[in-house]
Write a protein that binds this DNA or RNA. Structure first.
Lengths: 325, 325
DNA sequence: CGTCACATGGCAAGCGTTTGCCATTTGTTG
DNA sequence: CAACAAATGGCAAACGCTTGCCATGTGACG
């Protein structure tokens, strides 16, 4: 198929017999041109198949009507939810979303920030791996909203980890567990730190014993090592950094003949796709990822200042947690 | 945080004392400027924090160095693989990927195609829902590569469904199954049609009986209805449109007390995230989604004409399929 | 030492929009 | 009907970069 030249604003102007500026206004400042003229212009544009060129628009106006969302791993279902939510919100605002996968690498993240910077009106950074200083620097060149990460003076939306961890601990306590081990994820993970801090506090309030083990890779592959450590610890309840790890752990436990939840209860974080059909279905703390993604866009597009919005969480109780042995 | 003005090519030119055109060439046609001059320019750019503005670049050159990938549903793990593969390939080529979620809607797909058209060098359409005519029209304005869809005169990369379905049928036949039912997905699905056609042919060659039931929603929620129909059919093996449906079906079978694979074998398509840890782990036909995504980008960026590339497939045999009862 | 080719850099014209400002037309008001 | 304001449209200058073309300087070669 051969590519045809696109009609420009000038083609439309010529067709109708008005100036290009009038055509431009017909699209961007409707009130500014006579309704009848506008109608003709719209019809001519339709007829010619004219579509405004975003790059040219960006040049003239400085606005790009595009925002970028950077996530550490597109294939991680947790981020899929954020992406989906952001996509919808961006689309509803008539703008375009550019997605970047940082592959968990601060370097890649920095590169994307730099490359995309001039091309977008703002960034949503989901669980960024970059140090605070770099995040702040980025916020100097573009509007930036963080998801599940807090950096002073930068807008963010974070899950309500305090309530979240309290729910987890309450649930385990009500099942009669007296101690829990937390199988930690990467040391740099901000949300991981929050989760552990919350668990520890909540456990103390409940007079439960809480221990942290790890770090482990927050993936299925991190499971075996984490499971072994959990078994060795002898705790009746294990709380995992995230669902991936939890599922990996449960697999290993099954291999080792340890029954879930009869012998040990397992709880995860994220409620990823699959958490409800793994075996046994996983009790997990669900963040409203789509809402979080949408909220981040909302803040980016409409709110000024550096608001912090707290996203609610919800404990999904399924079969992987049960009464203490 | 206050946003600072970005330095332009002129700032760099002034800093070094050369013309803007020289700075431009230092970045885009390195051989064209004296190595020493170039070095100075690069240093000045670094010092000033200059980053070329893609929009302006696009205007001058006509190239946008951006490609768009449109998928029906970002949260579907099958597409995550394609996205990941495409992302990598695009990044490796030093270009930018824009992602669009069409929400399974032809209308949204058409809108994105139109809006994004002028802003990108080309499109990869994964399993597009649009009618042939619209796809061809899009290919008239931009370069287009299809994934898992064939439209005459448009480049594409498709899974090797013929081999795929043969593998499935061979596997079931070797387990002693004499008949299978295919639980179909949406009627408009091109890949669904391919799958059924392949299964039917392969089954006939093996003198197996193949029946198609459905359509069912290709989601977990489609499972119950499909499972009921499968049970009613009395077949010992069911092949599902995709893994989502297969997992939904297995759930329902479990609820109904039908044991998998003892009483009925279940096979899916896609090998999505979760297929290996659902219960029982699902036998499924894996497409190399990341490779397919990368291949599509490769075709878009480097190949001319309208090549058709066939992506290999592989049957992952797991616990959901077993000897016929 | 005269020619010539090549290396290097500058000039200026776009690329498709937006937008500030001015000119004209139309409508309103006293 | 004069005077003025509002509505409408056009002109032209950006926006930041690329690129075709030309001017100059350099070294090689005969």
């Amino acid at each position: 198929m051969t590519i045809r030249r696109r009609p420009t604003i000038n083609d439309v102007a010529a067709e109708v017999g008005v100036a290009a500026s009038t055509v431009s206004r017909a699209f961007t400042v409707p009130g500014r041109v006579n309704p009848r003229t506008r109608q003709q212009i719209l019809e001519a544009a339709e007829r010619l198949g004219y579509v405004p060129n975003p790059a040219a628009r960006a040049m003239g106006s400085g606005r790009t009507d595009t925002v970028a969302l950077l996530v550490p791993d597109i294939t991680n279902p947790f981020f899929s939810g954020i992406i989906k939510g952001a996509e919808r919100a961006v689309g509803a605002a008539g703008k375009t979303l550019v997605l970047g996968d940082t592959e968990e690498s601060p370097a890649v993240e920095a590169r994307l920030l730099e490359r995309l910077g001039p091309a977008v009106d703002g960034f949503v950074l989901a669980a960024p791996r970059l140090p605070d200083a770099d995040v702040r620097r980025a916020a100097t060149r573009n509007r930036v909203v963080l998801v599940n990460r807090v950096v002073p003076d930068v807008a963010c939306v974070v899950a309500d980890y305090e309530s979240a961890t309290r729910q987890v601990v309450d649930h385990l306590a009500s099942l009669g567990h007296r101690e829990l081990v937390f199988l930690a994820g990467p040391a740099e993970s901000w949300s991981g730190a929050q989760r552990w801090a919350g668990l520890e506090t909540a456990a103390r309030a409940r007079r439960m014993l809480a221990t942290r083990l790890g770090p482990y890779a927050p993936t299925l592959d991190g499971g075996p090592a984490a499971a072994e450590a959990a078994i060795a610890s002898g705790a009746s309840a294990v709380v995992c950094h995230n669902d991936m790890l939890a599922i990996g752990v449960m697999r290993r436990l099954a291999d080792r003949g340890v029954r879930v939840p009869e012998e040990v209860s397992v709880v995860g974080f994220d409620d990823i796709f699959g958490a409800d059909f793994c075996h046994p279905p996983l009790t997990t703390l669900a963040e409203r990822t789509q809402e979080a993604g949408a909220a981040a866009i909302e803040v980016l597009l409409h709110r000024s200042g550096t608001p912090t919005v707290i996203a609610p969480t919800e404990l999904k109780i399924r079969a992987s947690s049960g009464p203490a042995a």
